[in-house]
Design a protein around this nucleic acid. Sequence first.
DNA 1: CGCGAGCTTGACGTTGTTCAACTAGAGTGG
DNA 2: CCACTCTAGTTGAACAACGTCAAGCTCGCG
Lengths: 230, 230
Amino acid sequence: MNKMQESENCKNCSCKTSIFSSLTPDELEQINQGRYTVNYKPGEILFKQGTPSPHFVCLTKGLAKLYIEGYGKNLILALVKPVDYIFGPGTYVDNRHYYSAAAVDETTACLVDVNIFKKLIRQNPDFAEEFIQRLSRQAIFNFDQVISLTQKQMPGRIADVLFYLREKIYGKNPFEISISRQDLADLSGMSKESSIRILKELKDEGILKVTGNTVEILNEKQLRQISQTG
Amino acid sequence: MNKMQESENCKNCSCKTSIFSSLTPDELEQINQGRYTVNYKPGEILFKQGTPSPHFVCLTKGLAKLYIEGYGKNLILALVKPVDYIFGPGTYVDNRHYYSAAAVDETTACLVDVNIFKKLIRQNPDFAEEFIQRLSRQAIFNFDQVISLTQKQMPGRIADVLFYLREKIYGKNPFEISISRQDLADLSGMSKESSIRILKELKDEGILKVTGNTVEILNEKQLRQISQTG
DNA sequence: CGCGAGCTTGACGTTGTTCAACTAGAGTGG
DNA sequence: CCACTCTAGTTGAACAACGTCAAGCTCGCG
């Protein structure tokens, strides 16, 4: 609550980092005008695949997962933490969401009218370029992911997910995963049972230390090796 | 050869369709200045994953495949036919290619200096928007693909590829595939042997008619069913 | 005619899913 | 304070899906 001031105005918000750094104070004010803040409890859905996509979402607190609802099971595309934004590809196509988003932890997000966003893209080339760069990075990430999912065996896929969690999400080595084993499975494209089994194997081999939801990568080199050999 | 006039100047080129429609004659002329045309024989490589990416590529004749070189095998992301362009995500990130491209048939392409392209993105908002829309469509396509690859069994994946070939690439029903069985396998994320087997099964069930490289979808409804049920 | 590349087929082993049972911890109500 | 229940996690066994290997085939081409 003492941080509520942060979201009082975009100009002072930490959201200003990232691609927003190229916006002028006046442009930020426009974003600020068409913005409102929402809180989500763990498990609550931010938006659902297939629904209209009138907002651009900026995550200011918590953790969310982006996932495609496939044939009977989900595939988690990414986890999103502050300060990061969620901008689906449907916005410039048919204004629909192509994946769903749900809160993992207690989460706060700012929703901004997508038309304001589009207008700024048109009028500020720096902003547009930052945005395109952003989309590009996302595409590259997806490439890595699809290769991991389609060409590696389970241990390699789990290894990739563990590195992702440590480096991109939690940012420290003994890290406590707030996502479930099912989520872990949905991230690595396997069944929940398999993800548990692999985790146990890695633990038995002394590569990981797993106690409840706390994971520590003990033998980084060997885990890297597993990631490489598929 | 009698079509060489097409590529004499961008203003008259059929490339002008697609996203280039939003460019002014003057801007097209800029593209035209920094452009040169290259011919490729089947199998020849247009560019290679990991190399610098100084050009934006516009395919004016033939057929090419875009593929990621993974761990021991390739994954074909898409086939590209005229008039379509190839613009990798690395251009706005680190100026490297994140996938390779190779000619499948006899192919002609125009290479355009990427800096001219970037400059036009900055100065023409319509063009920028068209481009973003383009990237978005590509991302959506990749989503469909990754779900197909990770959540469907082999018959469903082959069905998806067959629909893709018919609808997006060859555009008619008895179609002659110029790609190899290995390519078919790389498109559907399986071994060459498996792709052959599935093709045979579909043939035996009367869903397809396969004679050499000519494929006809006989029972569309049933094939659609196979695609759905995974 | 013979050679080589791509294609095809079968047998076999591995990988990963499914199903079912069981466990542990966190409420909830008596 | 103790059942009861509900959910997430865990384990094992059976089974299906898929890749690998090896052999044989076809067809175009020298």
